[in-house]
Lab assay of single mutants.
Amino acid sequence: SFNTVDEWLEAIKMGQYKESFANAGFTSFDVVSQMMMEDILRVGVTLAGHQKKILNSIQVMRAQMN
């Protein structure tokens, strides 16, 4: 498990989005775990492969939080 959203993004090789997530207010796992595709688009993730990777990881995160 990760301590910060930045660490999580690095771990899934999506570190290039750290600033975008932070600027959009997605700075805690409570918020990130609620993200939908529209949120991912809003933070500027436009590549389908990256969207899928982030969404898949969020689903895993949700499962671990319950």
Rank of each mutant, 00 (worst) to 15 (best):
I54L: 13
A48F: 09
R62F: 09
N56D: 15
N23F: 10
N3R: 14
F29Y: 04
T4R: 07
A11M: 09
T4V: 05
G49R: 13
K18F: 04
M37W: 10
K53S: 09
Y17G: 01
R62S: 07
L47T: 12
Q59E: 13
T4D: 08
A24P: 01
A11H: 15
N23H: 11
M65L: 11
K53H: 15
Q59S: 10
I40R: 00
G25M: 04
A11N: 10
K52G: 06
A22F: 14
M37I: 10
F21C: 02
I58L: 08
M35I: 05
G15D: 09
M36N: 15
S28P: 01
I54W: 01
N56R: 14
G25Y: 04
V43W: 02
S33K: 10
G44F: 02
Q34P: 03
I58E: 00
A24M: 09
E7G: 08
S1Y: 14
Q59K: 15
A48S: 11
K13A: 14
L9R: 00
I58Y: 01
M37Q: 09
S20H: 13
L41D: 05
G44A: 03
Q51W: 05
M14K: 01
L47Y: 11
S57G: 09
R62M: 07
Q59C: 12
F2M: 07
M61N: 04
M65Q: 09
A11V: 08
Q59T: 09
A48C: 09
R62E: 05
I40E: 00
V32T: 03
I12E: 04
V5F: 02
I58G: 00
A48P: 15
L47K: 12
F2G: 06
N56F: 11
H50L: 04
K52W: 12
E38H: 10
D39S: 04
A22E: 08
K52C: 13
Q59D: 10
Q16T: 06
M14Y: 03
V43F: 02
Y17T: 01
M37H: 10
E7F: 05
E10M: 10
L41H: 08
E19I: 10
R42L: 09
V43R: 01
T4C: 09
F26Y: 15
Q16P: 04
S28F: 04
A22W: 10
G25N: 05
Q59L: 15
N56C: 14
A63E: 15
Q64N: 12
Q64F: 09
V60F: 13
I40W: 02
Q34R: 11
R42E: 08
I40T: 02
Q51G: 05
M61E: 03
E7H: 07
V31F: 08
E10T: 09
K52D: 11
D30M: 12
Q64T: 10
S33E: 06
N3F: 10
V43I: 13
Y17K: 01
S57K: 05
M14R: 01
H50D: 13
D6R: 05
S57R: 05
Q59G: 09
M36D: 15
M35E: 00
K52T: 11
S57A: 15
V5T: 04
K13S: 15
H50A: 05
K18W: 08
D39N: 03
F21G: 00
V43P: 01
V60P: 04
S28N: 12
M35V: 03
V31L: 15
N3Q: 14
M14T: 01
M36H: 14
N23M: 14
S33T: 11
V5R: 01
I58D: 00
K18S: 11
V5E: 00
G44W: 03
F29V: 06
F21S: 00
A11W: 13
M36S: 15
E10D: 13
D39P: 02
R42C: 07
N66G: 12
E19W: 11
H50Y: 03
E38M: 09
Q59Y: 12
T27A: 07
K53Q: 13
Y17N: 01
S33V: 14
T46I: 13
V45D: 01
M37F: 11
V45M: 03
I58T: 04
Q64G: 10
N23C: 07
A63K: 11
L41N: 06
S33N: 07
D39F: 03
F2A: 06
A11C: 10
V32M: 03
S20I: 08
T27S: 08
V31H: 09
G15E: 09
V60Y: 14
V43H: 01
E7M: 07
E10V: 09
G15R: 05
E38L: 07
Q51E: 02
F29T: 04
K52H: 11
Q34E: 10
L9V: 02
N3L: 10
E38V: 12
D39W: 04
K53F: 15
Q34W: 06
R62H: 08
M35C: 03
A63N: 14
T46K: 12
Q59P: 03
H50N: 04
E10C: 07
G49L: 13
M14W: 01
W8T: 00
N56V: 11
G15Q: 07
Q59I: 12
S33F: 14
G49W: 15
I54V: 04
K18C: 07
A22L: 10
H50G: 02
E10F: 07
R42P: 01
R42A: 13
K13I: 05
M65T: 07
S33L: 15
K52R: 13
M61F: 06
N66W: 03
D6I: 05
G15Y: 07
D6E: 11
M65V: 07
V60G: 08
M61A: 04
K13T: 11
D39Q: 05
V5S: 02
N3V: 10
F21I: 02
I40A: 02
S57V: 04
G15T: 07
V60D: 10
K18H: 04
L41V: 14
I12K: 02
L41P: 02
F29N: 02
V60K: 12
A22S: 10
G25A: 04
Q51S: 06
T46V: 13
N3W: 11
T27V: 10
L41I: 15
N56G: 09
L41M: 12
Q64H: 15
S20Y: 07
Y17F: 04
L41S: 07
S28E: 06
D30C: 14
M14H: 02
M36G: 15
L41E: 12
F29Q: 03
L9H: 00
D39M: 03
L55N: 04
F29C: 04
N66P: 08
E10R: 05
V5N: 01
I54R: 00
I58P: 00
K13Y: 13
N3A: 15
S1I: 13
V32H: 02
K52Q: 15
I54C: 02
E38S: 12
L55R: 04
T27H: 08
M36P: 03
S57D: 08
F2V: 07
Q34L: 12
L9C: 02
V31I: 14
M35P: 00
S57C: 13
K53R: 14
M37Y: 11
E7D: 13
T4I: 05
S28Q: 06
V43S: 05
E7S: 09
Q16N: 06
I40Y: 03
R62K: 14
D30R: 15
M14P: 01
